[in-house]
Design a protein around this nucleic acid. Sequence first.
DNA 1: TTTGTCTGCCCC
DNA 2: ATTCTGC
DNA 3: GCAGAATGGGCAGACAAA
Length: 525
Amino acid sequence: VPPPPLLVRDVFSTLRKISVQTGTGSNRQKKNLIVKLMRSCREKEIKFLVRTLARNLRIGAMLRTVLPALGRAVIMNSLWKCHNNEPSENCFREKLEGISAAVVEAYNILPSLDVVVPSLMGKDIEFSTSTLSMVPGIPIKPMLAKITNGVQDVFKLFQDKAFTCEYKYDGQRAQIHQLLDGTVRVFSRNGDETTSRFPDLVGVIKQFASPAAETFMLDAEVVATDRKNGNKLMSFQELSTRERGSKDTSITTESIKVEVCVFVFDIMFLNGEQLLALPLRDRRKRLNDVFPETRPGYLEYAKEITVRAEEASLDNQDTLLKINAFLEEAFQSSSEGIMVKSLDADAGYYPTKRSDSWLKVKRDYVDGLGDTLDLVPIGAWHGNGRKAGWYSPFLMACFNPETEEFQSVCRVMSGFSDAFYIEMKELYSEDKILTKKPPYYRTGETPDMWFPAEVVWEIRGADLTVSPVHHAALGLVHPSRGISVRFPRFIGKATDRNPEECSTAADIAEMFHAQTRKMNIKSQH
DNA sequence: TTTGTCTGCCCC
DNA sequence: ATTCTGC
DNA sequence: GCAGAATGGGCAGACAAA
């Protein structure tokens, strides 16, 4: 007897069951449930089931596909109801696009289908963004920034406009809400609740927020800080060692091993009023009302300088010097770089959408400023999806002349053109593929194939990290861990170099020590 | 209990 | 997070 | 100019296996 066909309701309830399984033996239970589902699959169902489980079908299609479709469905339904004959093509299309956009916009500030859908159904073609408002407790999509290749680029976009430069702290984005009942909740960049990880932060917000501020939503960066050492800012890597807590259990204030400081920089909502349309200059005034006082090492405003409209010109040498000095100061103060934001013109808070009203300048975007390594490809994996049939990523190594080893530094998959992949596929074939790992390759990685060390590539990254898997400079910085690189990408071939002339373990150890912002080795075991 | 491996609409 | 490609 | 795809380092936590 074949198993019964799949019904949406049963698939859904099984997925629910899988999602709540925890503890010893839970993996086996989950496996059994999945096998049961799979046995009932007909034709293409198995493909969609597997992709749903393996995350490939959870592709974030909500904003671009599902919501416009919802808008369409409602409009088509209602227009056909009131016109017996088909409405004119043009008017129809306009209406569709208008409502689709309105639904997306509404979801950006109120990402809850439970709220948006009933409103859409109720208002029908009268639906517009203004019929809905932000709700403390539901995080809005955060505003994002665009990469800028140096201060010159900034002027192109902000010529004759007043703007501000703020430190870009290397921590974790936090959207902080205070609800009507006084509760404070913290959300991550992706809208996940992280309140349980930051009980101390909740306390600080409650303590410093003006009593006149009953409800609000703030944008901020949480940064690891060393209070015993003059509130020196610590690395992102250090911040990430903080405990996480779970959905219903906070970490305890006593168990906190990494202290944090919150740097606030924006406010989107205050006492029932939506502030998204206000220019940044005015939002800042509101933010100042909420926090009339701050405390170093606990709660601070993001450090900033303001450039007046009449100063905002590439010919203005003073402005250029001022910004470059500020950028340099940001680097010295353990920041990643600066954020540049228009203050008056086009200076609203645009959730997710108009992602270019904020600019970011980091050392590694600017030619000639960032750290660059000369590394040797020593292996690779088989690529997936559109990179199937090519090598991706590659495993890169430095050379240690003391031990005569090639020690892995990082994988890299970014920065290659399609043409380069094809070239590498041809180059690394037949006798250029080793049958096993040479003994003088040192790495915790196991690539699909090993290559002979023959060429050198230039690799750029944001900064160097202490690694559990890569063995570059092992023993030089840390007894059992090597050095790796954050955000690695391929810049080009270093055609003039032999593999023995690539970056050495000693070079990399020295670069690590030269960093302002780095993992504190002594605190490690 | 301890150690090893894998995952995360993770964080960057 | 970064980058390239296709639309 | 934008979305989409394919992936980077590294952490704590969760689970399985020893």
